[in-house]
Amino acid sequence: MTQAKTVIQAQGLDLTFETNDGPVHALRDVNLAIDKGEFVSFIGPSGCGKTTFLRVMADLEQPTGGHISVNGMTPAQARQRRAYGYVFQAAGLYPWRTIGGNIRLPLEIMGYDRADQDARVARVLELVELDGFERKFPWQLSGGMQQRASIARALAFDADLLLMDEPFGALDEIVRDHLNEQLLKLWDRTGKTIAFVTHSIPEAVYLSTKIVVMSPRPGRITDIIDSPLPRERPLDIRDTPAFLEIAHRVREGLRAGHGDV
């Protein structure tokens, strides 16, 4: 954690979608640096470009201007070297594969040998506290467990960057609290860099070392908040004045960005 190596570097990033109703500015002049080991949340109303930004990092969208590097490479190179794991909003597990088989899927694609696959599956299942569920099928698991399996799948190969697009958005509050707590522990144990898209203020403040507030039309960054909270965060830290103060600042940032509506 001591070396401050930059993982994501974006400068003057622009992305314009051409639609039938004219151009849509999904991202305009986005500048951001994410250091190794950081937990960065992107928060903002829908249409602010937070997911688009994440997809640009993952080489799922192509920027129309500016510059971005991932691990010092272009996003395309980073993707080809499997530099990141991506967790989507839906778990997206294959119903015809067991939980173990689903986690094995990217490992098969990447050509890990069988023994290594087994070891990795066992390790990540333990990491997300799903040990014993390897032979179960997705429909036998609750929504929260499925999402944990999908996180395990993104952790199974050696990518030290984790991109998460509202992974807990479809889950209820209690499950979400639990998963947030687990995710923090996991981040602490693995030392991965995490970029996390959310629209929940408490979630963003609770999880992050850095909160990026974005606003729509055009999608842009309006505030970047470095969290003073300690790395060790029990759930009740959310009642402390420091926590509430950051949450307040995020809310103000969101309101300012929304001033034109």
């Binding site: 993952a58 080489d59 799922l60 993707r79 080809q80 499997r82 990141y84 794991g85 991506y86 989507f88 909003q89 839906a90 997206g92 899927l105 990217p106 694609i109 990447m110």
Partner: peptide, 13 residues
């Protein structure tokens, strides 16, 4: 789209 994107993030052939 999501499932195909997912394959892409793994750089699947």
């Amino acid at each position: 789209r999501m499932q195909l994107d997912q394959m892409r993030t793994w750089n699947a052939s």
